[in-house]
């Protein structure tokens, strides 16, 4: 994974159903993203009309000519094979979660474990949505859960409908990657 050589690399947006992966990529992509949304027949799990079953794909081109591909995964565990396909070779992962969903801390563990295997150590940022809604779990509980499991990953309260908030997630991920190169060199 070397953007200097290929001039192109990818970031994966993942997380459970309805967390906002498709929304986040649409907010950031410079082109109309590729979507694979179909009718959601599982209204018990999430009351939304459409759900992603393949992938989302957007793109941003940086002033230096580098291309960042933004991939979104499906959220349901039955599409786990897509997590692995899309996670392979990713520079980093952004895990989106809905703070009001029951069992969201278990989802955190599930996605961190699934993507820690694919991305360089620590190249994961957690974006927590709907934190202002009643019943939302505060980001501190997520940070503590990660700490208890030996991870130090950012948990940022965001609204992925706002481009600025999605940028915050991507910038944070880029800073982590930058810090890792600093760390990686011998003194």
């Amino acid at each position: 994974m070397n953007p200097g050589v290929q001039g192109e690399f990818k970031i994966v947006f993942t997380g459970p159903m309805g967390a906002g992966k498709t929304t986040a990529i649409a907010a950031l992509s410079e082109v109309e993203p590729v979507r694979t949304e179909v009718e959601n027949t599982d209204r018990m799990s999430h009351d939304k009309e459409f759900t992603t079953v393949g992938l989302d794909m957007g793109r941003i081109t940086l002033p230096g000519g580098q291309v960042v591909r933004l991939y979104g995964t499906p959220g349901q565990a039955r599409f786990r094979f897509m997590w692995d396909i899309l996670g392979r070779g990713a520079a980093g992962a952004i895990i989106l979660l809905d703070a009001t969903q029951a069992g969201v801390l278990v989802q955190l563990d599930l996605f961190v474990d699934a993507f820690a295997a694919h991305v360089p150590r620590g190249a994961i940022v957690i974006g927590l949505g709907r934190t202002h809604q009643p019943g939302a779990l505060a980001s501190d509980a997520f940070a503590e859960r990660l700490e208890a499991r030996g991870f130090t990953l950012p948990v940022l309260s965001v609204d992925v409908r706002k481009r600025r908030d999605v940028m915050l997630l991507v910038e944070t991920l880029a800073c982590i990657l930058e810090a890792q190169t600093t760390e990686g060199l011998p003194s």
Partner: peptide, 9 residues
């Protein structure tokens, strides 16, 4: 599950 991904793709 995989079939639905392929159909969507």
């Amino acid at each position: 599950a995989i079939g639905s991904s392929l159909s969507a793709l």
